[in-house]
Simulated scan of single mutants.
Amino acid sequence: MSWTDGPLLGFDTETTGVDVTRDRIVTAAVVRRDAAGTVVRTWLIDPGIEIPAAATAIHGITTAQARAHGAAPAVALEEIAVALTTALAAGTPVVAFNASFDLSLLDAELRRHGLPTLAGRLGAPVSPVIDPLVLDRSEARYRRGKRTLADLCAVYQISDTANLHSADADVVATLDVLAAIAASFPHLRELTPDALHAHQVAAHRAWAEEFNSWRASRGMNGPGAELTWPGRDAAPAETVADTAALPA
């Protein structure tokens, strides 16, 4: 029996931006897939700050919608964290595309609201996690082109992509891409979830070091790619009290 037989718990967020220490979760989805089928749970959250127009253009949620219909952040974040850590504690892999972004942002949000982080709840590192982006970079290293979720859906011939950039649709697409990667590279199916997690830690570091070396060779400034996966070595998030007086 392989990890591909399930259960798997997919996770994705749509946010106010891409800064894992300062931006907020607007919507989230957790999708459980096993032999019995697929079960989707979603959240709409009032992030407590203005949602930039550029973010709304991607996921379609306005500040007014989030304020009128969104859950209080602390309540929703607690529910999301419980769903993820319950699965992880049972050995069920969490699947996320570009997992380091979503998991790091979630942990920053939990700290912001005085809630335990995922690792704090588990009493151990967050594992096992499966990231189709990391696997595709590793297994199809020399394929040219971008590697967004939409790009990989095209590569692996996932057709149901009309609603990408909604959290639940992105999770379902991520799980479909993962299944296609496992079919294309069957040696991945033979690994245990823990061994697959360790494989991705090493694969991500190798990619990040090579990418950062390429940037340096061209004189590019900036931090480059994080070496760690699935967590980032990010600064702690500010608390709600810290940001209460900040402009939108």
Rank of each mutant, 00 (worst) to 15 (best):
G222R: 09
D23F: 12
A183E: 13
A248I: 05
D19C: 06
D23I: 11
T148R: 15
V82A: 12
A182D: 09
A76P: 00
L191T: 00
P125L: 03
P47T: 09
P47S: 08
L9I: 05
S138K: 05
S217E: 06
T42M: 07
D170K: 13
E139V: 15
E226V: 00
A208N: 04
A169G: 11
A244S: 12
R24V: 11
T228I: 01
A182M: 13
L84V: 09
P93H: 04
E226P: 06
A140W: 06
G6W: 01
S166W: 14
V126C: 00
A57I: 08
A64Y: 11
G70K: 13
L188I: 10
G224L: 11
A64F: 08
R141L: 08
D102F: 11
A180G: 11
A87Q: 10
A36N: 04
T63M: 11
T62V: 13
E109W: 03
I130Y: 03
A83H: 11
R232Q: 13
E226D: 13
R141G: 01
V134W: 02
L8G: 05
A124G: 11
M220H: 13
G224V: 11
A53D: 15
Q200C: 01
A90C: 08
F185N: 08
V177N: 02
R215A: 08
G6I: 08
T27C: 14
E238Q: 15
R41G: 03
A150V: 00
L9W: 05
D5T: 14
A71C: 06
T92R: 06
D242W: 15
S138G: 07
R121H: 02
G120K: 06
H165C: 07
D242C: 03
R141Q: 08
E79T: 13
V134M: 01
I49T: 15
V126Q: 00
H199A: 10
D107R: 08
A28S: 14
L118N: 02
T243L: 15
S166N: 15
G10C: 07
L152W: 06
L84T: 08
A140I: 01
I130W: 00
G91F: 05
N212W: 10
E109Q: 13
P47I: 08
